[in-house]
Amino acid sequence: MANIQATSPKPTGWAHRLQHGDLFFWLLTLFFALVIIGLVVAVGVVTYNGSAEARAEYGTSFLTQSDWNPIETDLYQPSYGAWPAIRGTLLSSLIALLLAAPTGIAIGIFLSELCPLRLRALLGFTVELLAAIPSVIYGLWGVAVFSPWFTNAIANPLATSIGQFIPWLAGPIAVSRGLAVTGVILAIMILPTIAAITRDVLQAVPNHQRDVMLALGSTRWEVIWLSVLPYSRAGIIGGVMLGLGRALGETMAATMLIGNSTRIEESIFYPATTAAALVASELPNSNSTMHESALIYLALVLFGITLILNLAARYLVWQTSRGPAGARA
């Protein structure tokens, strides 16, 4: 100690920190971190201000009113209710989540735990490639290939059989655009995200957590079910939520496939709309300042929905990852 003090004059305060670049680097990274918060606030402020006219007119009843009619005629005043778009957003994302979460988690489990090493790299690369396909291509494929097939092979048989008793599966199906087919395409789009994150999270589980279970005479399945999945629960939920976020905000594929109808139909095989699809299709040619304001209000609502769902996911992760009391993270 004495030696160090004797040979180097003790630098003080700012000069010392600047000399080592620490302070500069700290400020630089802090600045970029604050940019993130600034962006979130800016999006909130812009949508809040832009929607002032619609908020003054409709208030919170905007959320529950189900007529969206921007056309002004001699007989009708335009009216703006967000419920059809909110309902379509939530339902199409729910369908996507119900299909993609179990499938994606299963793919992740296979890639991490069961796949032969030689096949793993190839399959993993393909999954990541799927995540990188632009959504317009999914939409195009959905319109040209998938939705006609879906209508013939799945929607129509369902609608003409059990659909006669269950209203939300009812027909007759006139066009091959609708809520259900959009949900399925959204599921395909978010599947690689969920699969890739599940795989990464499972591969981060230390091998000794597996070895202990194997040494107790577990089968591979018991190792996965009793040790690996509980260990990585929080991360898997995070991956599913990331997928859900993508489904909620997906615009292009939804616009191409959902039929863009603001009428509320009970059957999921009928055309509907989502918040993102409605904003994207109407904002560029809005009829009036009120129309524009209502669309921005709708964007604000979508922003709110994603925010609330993400907070709920955080809470869920926090709840499930605690485990038994006394664990040191």
Partner: peptide, 14 residues
């Protein structure tokens, strides 16, 4: 049975 080098508690269990 087998006991390993690292002391291992299964993390999600009491």
């Amino acid at each position: 049975g087998m006991v390993f080098q690292m002391p291992i508690a299964l993390r999600t269990r009491s």
